[in-house]
Computed example of a mutant assay.
Amino acid sequence: MEQHWQLLLSALVNFQFVYPTDRDIVPGWLITELLDRYKQLMKMPLPYRKVCRGPLLSHSQYEIDQREWGYLA
């Protein structure tokens, strides 16, 4: 998941939302590490090209983004 660590963060946040009483299953250091990465990402400039990583999640749902809206995969 190194390259797509944001997906891991998303899955862990969803897990903790769905199972709030099982929050301790996810190591705290991992959440802290991923949140620190996210904070650093928010300080970086935006990409100069329009990018859509949606096809990593669904091949069909984001097809229009690339075909008609000019997003790169």
Results as ranks from 00 to 15, higher is better:
Glu2Asn: 12
Arg67Ser: 03
Ile31Gly: 00
Gly54Tyr: 04
Val18Tyr: 09
Leu72Ile: 02
Ser58Arg: 01
Glu63Ser: 08
Ser10Leu: 02
Leu30Asp: 05
Glu2Val: 14
Tyr38Thr: 09
Asp36Val: 02
Asp22Tyr: 07
Val18Cys: 06
Ala73Lys: 05
Thr21Gln: 10
Lys39Tyr: 11
Asp36Phe: 05
Leu8His: 12
Trp29Gln: 10
Ala73Trp: 02
Tyr71Gln: 11
Glu63Tyr: 08
Ile31Asp: 03
Glu68Ile: 01
Pro55Phe: 00
Leu7Tyr: 15
Leu72Trp: 08
Arg67Leu: 08
Arg37Gly: 04
Leu7Glu: 09
Thr21Ile: 15
Gln16Leu: 01
Pro47Ser: 13
Met1Ser: 14
Val51Ser: 05
Ala11Asp: 01
Trp69Phe: 15
Glu63Trp: 06
Met42His: 07
Leu56Trp: 10
Leu46Met: 14
Gly28Asn: 12
Met1Cys: 11
Gln61Trp: 09
Gly28Met: 07
Ile64Trp: 12
Met42Val: 12
Cys52Pro: 03
Met44Pro: 01
Ser10Gly: 02
Trp5Thr: 15
Leu41Thr: 09
Glu2Thr: 14
Val26Thr: 07
Phe15Trp: 00
Leu7Ala: 09
Leu35Trp: 05
Ile64Leu: 11
Leu57Met: 11
Gln40Arg: 05
Trp69Val: 14
Gln3Glu: 14
Ala73Gln: 11
Ala73Glu: 10
Asp65Gln: 03
Gln3Arg: 15
Lys50Met: 15
